[in-house]
């Protein structure tokens, strides 16, 4: 169990994190979501024991990151947003470096290296220099270096930034394997779909504050009303207003109403009467992005 208790962090006049508290169940995947600059990376650095000065605490199985930093660091695998590898050295040399930093040596280190290289799909490239790797391969090695010591908690800060879909999928496979093995994962991203698909519970951060947290279904129940999506050439806000609360989204409108099926029928009748042929008219499954908009009035991608 991870207990985050009243964490605050200030950089000069900027309040990067403001009194953040939440809990993460052991073996679950917790998503930290927010726009760029929301404070996600600062939170990740505090949870992984990198930042030395902050207020509040994080407890991992009742051990405090503020007081027992070394204990926490041994149990956490931190995967930073940047690719932190020695690029002029081989994948194997990088793994030896990080393995030894986590206290592994000898046969144990060799065995773990073989196992992790297999897991990240780089066994056949282990002796090659990292400079010869693609962006996706570097990302996978970046992850592998944090898994050597079999951490209880894996902290991933935007691990899929700037990579191709194939590499992204292989990273998702690694995450699914970690989940299956019982690791607790803290996953930060501004890609909503990733978080929705991977995470059991989610914390939404905006301007250094935790605006909401809970299981995805709970959040949807709490904050996302049933809706329709309507799009078409002559359909505008004024036309939809009598049927509910239309909000422009992409090339159409999300129309929130208490009874979407009834509203759907009414819209079909209205369109038939007026001879309007909508390009899209469908039940809309609210997304994390809609919850964020509902809570902050800001689109995640625009923030």
């Amino acid at each position: 169990m991870i207990d985050v208790v009243n964490i605050s962090k200030q950089y000069g006049a900027i309040q990067a994190l403001d009194n953040i508290s939440f809990e993460i169940e052991e073996g679950s995947c917790f998503g930290v979501v927010g726009p760029n600059g929301a404070g996600k990376s600062t939170l990740m650095k505090i949870l992984s024991g990198i930042l030395l000065e902050f207020k509040g605490d994080m407890l991992l199985n009742d051990h405090s990151v503020a007081k027992e930093r070394m204990y926490i660091k041994k149990r956490i695998g931190y995967i930073p947003q940047e690719i932190c590898l020695e690029e002029t050295l081989s994948a194997r040399d990088n793994m030896i470096l990080f393995g030894k930093l986590y206290g592994l040596s000898g046969k144990k280190l060799q065995d773990r290296m073989e196992s992790v290289l297999e897991q990240i799909g780089l066994s056949d490239r282990s002796k090659d220099k990292v400079t010869t790797f693609s962006g996706g391969m570097k990302r996978r090695l970046n992850i592998g270096c944090a898994l050597l010591h079999e951490p209880d908690v894996v902290i991933m800060d935007e691990p899929t930034v700037g990579i191709d879909p194939q590499s992204r999928n292989s990273i998702f496979t690694i995450i699914e394997q970690l989940k299956a093995s019982g690791s607790t994962i803290i996953y930060s991203s501004h890609y909503m779909e990733e978080v929705e698909n991977l995470c059991d519970s989610i914390g939404l951060i905006d301007k250094g504050q935790l605006v909401e947290f809970g299981a995805m279904n709970e959040l949807l129940e709490r904050h996302a009303a049933p809706s329709l999506f309507v799009a078409g050439g002559s359909i505008d806000h004024d036309m939809l207003a009598p049927f509910g609360s239309p909000v422009e989204k992409g090339d159409g409108f999300v129309l929130t109403s208490d009874s979407p099926l009834d509203t759907l029928e009414q819209l079909v009748s209205r369109f038939r009467e007026d001879g309007i042929d909508p390009r899209r008219l469908e039940l809309y499954r609210p997304r994390l992005e809609d919850i964020f908009f509902h809570l902050t009035g800001t689109q995640l991608r625009d923030a």
Binding site: I50, K73, L101
Partner: peptide, 13 residues
């Protein structure tokens, strides 16, 4: 600049 300082700071070293 590569973030290696922070990455190493996350280890027990």
């Amino acid at each position: 600049e590569r973030g290696m300082v922070a990455r190493i700071a996350s280890t027990p070293l």
